[in-house]
Simulated assay, not measured.
Amino acid sequence: MSKLVDDLVTLARLSPAQLKEKWTGIEGCVPPSVPPGLLRRLIAQRLQERRHGALPAIVARELARIASQGVEPPPPRRQIRLTPGARLVREWNGRTVTVEVLEHGFAYADRTWRSLSEIARHVTGAHWSGPRFFGLTGNG
């Protein structure tokens, strides 16, 4: 094994106090106040950077710039509430699939089903997300 691999394997066995000593030896300063698991990963990153090189300064600056701008969270998923009596209609391979929403489940093909996914699997013969199959999500 290479020295780097040996060092990385050794990190897994170090106590929190030993990790702090290792950080001080590598960085020459007090370690950040983070959980031991994270400190272990930070040390591993530093060891790998020494062996293979760090990100170019321009890339690091660009990443820092992007991080400082913040990222907008994705819009909330729309909540679809199915009320008893509603009908879901889907065309599949030239056949119209009509499902009625019941108080507890769904009616399709003269049978009561627990979920839309069961119906979608029955109709297609493949695993489908029922809400996606019937167009109730933004992904379908």
Rank of each mutant, 00 (worst) to 15 (best):
A109S: 08
S117I: 15
E103V: 01
S115I: 00
A86T: 01
L116N: 04
H122I: 13
N93K: 04
V123F: 11
G105C: 09
N93A: 12
R95L: 12
A86D: 09
E91P: 02
S117P: 07
R95S: 14
R114D: 00
T98H: 06
R121M: 00
V97G: 05
T98C: 07
R95P: 12
T98E: 10
A120P: 01
T96P: 02
E100S: 14
A120K: 02
G94Y: 02
V101A: 13
L88T: 00
L116V: 13
A86R: 01
H104P: 11
T83D: 11
A109T: 08
W92A: 09
V123T: 14
R90W: 12
H122S: 12
F106S: 11
E103F: 06
G94H: 07
T112N: 05
N93W: 00
E91Q: 11
R95H: 08
L102T: 12
V89C: 03
N93R: 03
E118H: 12
V89G: 03
R121F: 14
R90L: 04
L116T: 10
G85C: 01
V89I: 05
V123E: 06
S115R: 15
G105D: 15
E103H: 15
H122C: 11
H104Q: 11
G94D: 11
R111A: 06
G85H: 10
H122M: 07
R90D: 09
E103Y: 01
E91I: 00
G105S: 00
V97K: 13
E91G: 05
V97L: 09
I119W: 05
V97N: 08
L82H: 04
V123A: 10
A107Q: 15
V89P: 04
V89H: 01
E103M: 05
